[in-house]
């Protein structure tokens, strides 16, 4: 995973609430066994509508998705963040995210940025007026800044995840530092705990 620190990019506004992962990447794409190449399937059904905002050439190359509340609800498919990542997105900005989608995104360094719904709406309107508007996401400072429209807001992230993302660390390696604790826990498990084999 590449380290996430600070970046400045243009954004595309997807003004819909409760966007589910079946829309982000339809299930047909889930038969693939590769880890890359899902960008072509991103919102593939909605993209059949020429007026869909992700078809608008003014937003080509945007690396931030401005989205409605509860983004990424539904299925646990990590293919959804993979598709967004593969299509060039580095952060999703919304007033809330579905829990599993948020976890999956944080695993791969796609940053879910939670800010107040009114500010998300204001940013959507600003980006609709000026698709070239640049937004800065600063993970280190935990701030989202859009100088031109005088937005400078904090966003929350736990200290551990922030450290892992800014250093680009392997999550599994971090857990394996607690090997002794894991083994100790295993020796204390109940005798009747079911075993598969």
């Amino acid at each position: 995973m590449r380290a996430v620190t600070v970046f400045t990019a243009r954004a595309v506004p997807l003004d819909r609430a409760d966007v589910d992962t079946d829309q982000i990447i339809p299930s047909d794409w889930l038969k693939r066994i590769e880890r890359t190449g899902f960008g072509a399937g991103l919102f593939s059904e909605w993209k059949k509508d020429p007026s869909f905002v992700l078809n608008d050439p003014r937003y080509a190359g945007a690396e931030i998705l401005l989205a409605g509340a509860n983004f990424g609800c539904g299925s646990s498919r990590e293919h959804a963040p993979w598709a967004l990542e593969d299509a060039g997105f580095r952060a999703i900005v919304a007033s809330s995210f579905a829990d599993i989608f948020r976890n999956n995104s944080l695993k791969i360094g796609l940053l879910p940025v939670v800010i107040d719904a009114a500010i998300v709406s204001a940013l959507m309107r600003a980006v609709e007026l000026d698709p070239a508007l640049e937004i800065t996401v600063d993970l280190q400072a935990q701030r989202l800044v859009v100088t031109r429209v005088k937005v400078d807001v904090a966003f929350a992230i736990d200290a551990f995840t922030k450290w892992r993302l800014t250093e680009g660390l392997d999550d599994i390696g971090l857990s394996l530092r607690h090997e002794v604790d894991i083994t100790r826990h295993e020796s204390g498990r109940a005798s009747w705990s079911p075993k598969v084999a």
């Binding site: 646990s76 990590e78 293919h79 999956n104 695993k107 999550d171 599994i172 394996l176 894991i182």
Partner: peptide, 12 residues
């Protein structure tokens, strides 16, 4: 859980 977490559980 997602696939990264599946890998995490398999390993740890």
């Amino acid at each position: 859980i997602g696939t990264s977490e599946v890998e995490h559980v398999l390993a740890t």
